[in-house]
Design a protein around this nucleic acid. Structure first.
Lengths: 342, 342
DNA sequence: GTAAATTTTGGCAACGTTACCAAAAAGAGT
DNA sequence: ACTCTTTTTGGTAACGTTGCCAAAATTTAC
């Protein structure tokens, strides 16, 4: 190959191969009927000149941009990282690129980003943990722009797809597990109360208590924000309840880490004095000390599935939205202990 | 605002405002001289129709796409996450978008991605921990496509910029710290040997040993891959040296975590039996148990600086590349102990 | 050998934007 | 009022691609 100099267009290739640009276009989108001999000629010319298609022009013309926009609250958080990893893998497998936007939980950012993305930049949109859906959902639906929500309460619209895990069941399982270990005073660190998943998990927790005839005590519930420091603060508060909890259920692993830190700094030991259970099963959870018993969300799978759902919509725009719930799974490690062995 | 229906073009706005599309274009790129009165009229029309610029068309025309491509080996790794966070923040502050590509350390992926990106998709390119630079560097330089390498050995070319931290010095400091705590047998878990930063850190380690007249023992050095399990395996091997190390220096925090796990599973305690020191200071490092003494790389700053350097190049294409080294800093926490107190 | 059917190819317009140049409007100077 | 500047606006041609339709080349049928 000669110098792959920047501005090699389809026209240059056409000239080099002695055919028309239409023919080159046909070869590039290798679907059409082109005489094998001609195709060979064009392919050679492309090779010689180092031709690479210009996606901008292609997508301007009305074709696909082969880009999917992904809106996430943050990066560098392993919960989100895992989902992105799944998205990325599945996207790459289908020759799509990934345009990443972070909102930092700023609502205005969400809507401006959505506007730009839908304006030709991307073929579809993946919304992870969105917080301001109403602001743009209408526009998204009006123009039938393909989109999938991840970890968001179901939107009642036939064009919107959502991917979730069984938050209620997961929280129920975790709580039940603690109860069966003999715990009766179980603290609960809620996540962001604006998020449906927080409420679902809280409901699961309450349901399990109810099923075992354990009274619900509001003093054992603390509303946090899913981040580590709030887990710490929550625990400091919860430990003042009387009687104090013998187990704490954190709405996600990150805040569970804060919980563990706080327990230690109160001179208590895990799991001997207090059991801790998390939610998510981020990769680090197994590396905590002690390793964290938690409810596993299939994060990577959720990302992959979201992409698959989106691509299905892309391939068939008439497809209605669907709502998928992936099962959670209780992962027992070393941060919980039977209360009787104390 | 009326329905922000998809296909509002500059021409629709022009018609609505009763001016020409050129004028609308001038208002959109609000730099030109437009009569304030006219500008107002256009702005109103834009508002009414819900106009959003089509980036594709704009960048096709030859302007800027306002997108920067970022090539990373992986996501969901906090080291990379932190750098991306910095990149993202700085990019957003300058109205740029972020096209993210993951290579998963697959060399072929790197070059194909670079080819697509440079072909109109993005205005500039950020390469994080690239492993196959020679494959595309020439083409990047030939077309003078603005790019910045993060955490890669200096490339001797006036058009390439690189951002790094003081790997040698950081490793020297860490080793010196251990030596001054009385350690003489210091194991070292190298990162990927293909990466210059691994070698730089190894050199810093050796230099410190030499300065204190401690013989270098190859049995105390293990070549890993920067990931957690290798840290575990490394430690298992290193502990068989005779005499075994009293401290282990891991080339990054993630493998330090593996080191800690391994030490514990051998029934030893940190830092009483063995001291552990890491490199990076990822956010989790402070949450390890015990909290990890480590060499802090200003990861987020590295990301920000890379973007700033790139944007400078974008603004002034004649600017030569520069090579910046950001200082590391020893963060003392609880994973190291003086050997005399044993 | 010619007409008809078929395959393969080329020409041209369009996607939405911006840059350039020329035209029109407004202001300044005599 | 009439030039001469200066400001402001409009027209038009690209950017690189693809889709449509028609033209040319090829094959098939009679």
């Amino acid at each position: 190959m000669v110098k792959p100099d920047s501005n090699v267009t389809i026209i240059d290739v056409a000239r080099e191969a002695g055919v028309s640009n239409s023919t080159v276009s046909r070869v590039v989108n290798n679907s059409e009927l082109v005489k094998p001999e001609t195709r060979e000629k064009v392919l050679n010319a492309m090779m010689r000149l180092g031709y690479v298609v210009n996606q901008q022009a292609r997508s301007l013309r009305g074709g696909r941009s082969q880009v999917v926009g992904v809106l996430v609250p943050d990066v560098g958080n392993s919960y989100i990282g895992e989902i992105i990893r799944g998205i990325d893998a599945e996207l790459a497998a289908n020759q799509y690129d990934l345009l990443l936007y972070t909102t930092h939980r700023r609502k205005t950012k969400e809507s401006t980003h959505v506007a730009t993305i839908t304006r030709g930049l991307a073929d579809g949109l993946l919304l992870l943990l969105p917080t301001n859906v109403q602001a743009y959902m209408e526009s998204l639906q009006a123009q039938q722009f393909p989109h999938v929500l991840i970890d968001y309460q179901a939107v009642d619209n036939k064009w919107t797809s959502t991917i979730q895990s069984t938050n209620w069941q997961g929280a129920y399982d975790a709580t039940q597990y603690l109860i069966e270990l003999g715990h009766r005073r179980i603290g609960y660190v809620v996540g962001l109360r604006e998020m449906q998943c927080s409420l679902d998990r809280l409901a699961g927790y309450r349901a399990a208590l109810a099923d075992y005839a354990i009274p619900f005590d509001p003093a054992l519930v603390y509303y946090g924000d899913f981040y580590l420091p709030e887990g710490y603060d929550a625990t400091t508060t919860l430990l003042q309840a009387s009687p104090p909890p013998t187990a704490i259920f954190a709405a996600n692993d990150l805040s569970a880490l804060g919980v563990m830190e706080a327990i230690r700094s109160h001179g208590l030991s895990i799991p001997n004095d207090i059991s801790v259970i998390g939610f998510d099963d981020i990769p680090d959870a197994a590396q905590f000390h002690p390793s964290l018993t938690t409810v596993r969300q299939p994060l990577e799978d959720m990302g992959r599935l979201a992409v698959r759902t989106l691509l299905k919509r892309l391939a068939n725009p008439d497809l209605h939205g669907e709502r998928v719930e992936l099962p959670t799974e209780l992962i027992v490690r070393n941060s919980c202990k039977s209360v009787n062995h104390k």
